[in-house]
Nucleic acid binder design. Structure first.
Lengths: 362, 362
DNA sequence: CGGTAGAGTGCAATCGATTGCCGCAATCGA
DNA sequence: TCGATTGCGGCAATCGATTGCACTCTACCG
């Protein structure tokens, strides 16, 4: 492959002039520039980014560390980051941490050797020393989906608290007071914020959160299924279930679809945090608190690019992307229940009945 | 950040010795080596991959070009590639081509500048000149999901023909003879192979494929929904629908879920190519021809890594990953139909009735 | 006519590793 | 005792760009 030297010889100039034409870094006589451009064309010259990076200390590469690319939430987020990076001429290095702090550290080490310009990460740990180290080395960095407490770093997150609050309020308005919660990983700020939103909504109705209704499982489909089963088998089971992430929602939906006795939404309601395309075609279609992972990714990338411009000095920003309650058919009114206040709470909620309404698809 | 020179000075040796210790490329006295390793430790030395790449012409980076990372098929494939690459010490650069040939070319150009060691690509075009150019420059390369005819290049694909054949055979055995097909992009080899499998299955039963039953739409959820509607509104509609990719299956499932008159599987059966986790919790759960995108990605990465070893000389390989029919509840027996042979074809098929069988979740 | 400004360009150091070539000392075999 | 081998390690060129410095012309001003 042709080098800058080759181009320079062909055009009868020195390589510095070629470089300056390439980058527009100083005035070059128009006809010289033309000659050089023609030589580039003729030789099919492509600058070597490796050499350029070595010299300039910039790689025009960003990196994204997520816990599971094949999770629809993250794959949409990846797309948001990729599109944004691409639009600014950056390439994107993807890494899968599988929620494993040591894998995360190993990746970061390798990325630093690679001289990536910046890193977007959904940190696996609670007190990610990996992130702390990045900041220490003043590597531009942005967090997504989760924050690490007490670290001044750019971050983009869903408004988890408000989203969960809204979901639980929605359930309460339909008469549900015993609400089972299927928790994800408790060391993640996203989970904790959602739980906090849940509890706040209860308290605002003067209801005390019942720890017995909180079930934790592996943060995956099977974990959600198991947790859902656990809730349904309680002596005094909840009338509604709130699943705190998409995979667990899917697990719960699977259980309810096949449950021999409890039907959704007649017997048990289901509401999930994080929407997915498939939530619209389940039985019943699932009411969810939709996040906007694409927007989260795009915003994080914007934040990171801005920081590349302005340096570490500028104060760090936290962006909250609003959630949106997507009403479908998995939430019904609570049956009149032994709970004394049950009946009173029921309001004119939509009867979740026929699933075959002619409603536009999506 | 410390350089190799710094380490060398600290250990009182020349940088070449440091390099040889780092790479194990020649004998170094044990105590010297120890001294060097301690110096590395003390200075927190990390070799600069940029400089290394410049010198060695290898970047230890692979790239993956896919049409849509957020499509579950591709996101699982990405994961397969990433895990495999990572295990061999390679990093992975991800690019989203959005089925756009010009974006594809632009990406490839940029990747070549970056000196990636190899490229895995699901080519967007029919006659991808991008791929042709890669081969021309002898850039190690592997295709996934689709092939480009007449190009000798490594590739990993589902056994599309056999998978589609099996799906259609399954329908035929249940008495369906009028089978509507929802097609994806016709210029992709995957679509064409699936269609060929469909037609072969019909012919083996002495049935002539009816072009009127082939509907094409945009290869997305809405496209699948529109195509499904088109089939249902025909004067003489099919008794079963075969959707040729996952997104279109989702669209069709959404239409059937809400259709005022035609119910699935009683009135119309649905079978999809490419499985997804959500196919198990739809109404009804959808019978699909499962692909193994993770395995496809992993195999493609293995092929690519092997080629990096053996060079362009070795003959190119095409690996076919088998599909697997996942029987759920979206396919029923065809109603006795005006078609004369209809009744005879019906065999002891499972009656798709109660959806609430207690079946283990997944 | 000397001085200066500005346009246009080249030289060579530099980024941080890798690697061919060579030198020195110790050991070995004859 | 001498040449050969082996172990160990330094020197310096190299990969392909970027960039500070300096140089040569013109043109123009006073």
């Amino acid at each position: 492959m042709a080098t800058m030297r080759d181009v320079a010889m062909a055009a009868g100039v020195s390589s510095s002039t070629v470089s300056h034409v390439l980058n527009g870094t100083r005035r070059v006589a128009p006809d010289t520039a033309d000659r050089i451009r023609r030589a580039m064309e003729a030789l099919d010259y492509q600058p070597d980014d490796t050499a350029r990076s070595l010299r300039t200390r910039r790689s025009y590469t960003l990196s994204l560390l997520v816990s599971d690319i094949s999770n629809p939430f993250f794959s949409a987020l990846v797309k948001g980051v990729e599109d944004t990076a691409q639009a600014s001429g950056f390439r994107l290095l993807i890494c899968n941490t599988a929620e494993d702090v040591s894998k995360e550290s190993a990746y970061i080490k390798s990325l630093l050797q690679r001289r990536v310009d910046g890193i977007i990460i959904s940190p696996a740990g609670e007190e990610s020393q990996a992130v702390e180290e990045l900041l220490g080395r003043s590597v531009p960095c942005a967090l997504v989906d989760r924050v690490v407490p007490r670290l001044a770093v750019d971050a983009v997150l869903s408004d988890n608290y408000a989203g969960a609050y809204e979901a639980v309020k929605y359930l309460l308005e339909r008469g549900h007071v015993r609400i089972g919660v299927v928790l994800g990983l408790m060391h993640l700020s996203s989970t904790r914020e959602r739980l906090a939103g849940h509890e706040a909504a209860l308290r605002d109705r003067d209801l005390a959160p019942d720890p017995a209704l909180l079930v934790q499982g592996k943060s995956c489909i099977d974990g959600g299924a198991a947790a859902c089963n656990a809730l349904l088998e309680m002596a005094d089971p909840p009338t509604a279930i709130f699943t705190l992430n998409n995979l667990m929602t899917m697990g719960a939906a699977g259980v309810l679809l096949r449950h021999p006795k409890r039907r959704c939404p007649q017997d048990v309601s289901l509401i999930g945090f994080d929407d997915s395309p498939w939530a619209d075609i389940t039985n019943p279609p699932i009411t969810t608190v939709a996040q906007d992972p694409y927007a989260i990714g795009a915003a994080a990338c914007d934040l990171l690019l801005a920081r590349l411009e302005c340096g570490a000095a500028a104060p760090s920003k936290v962006v909250r992307i609003p959630t949106r309650l997507v009403e479908r058919e998995s939430v019904g009114s609570a049956r009149p229940h032994k709970t004394p206040h049950g009946g009173k709470e029921v309001r004119g909620s939509e009867q979740a009945g026929s699933r075959r309404k002619a409603k536009p698809n999506r």
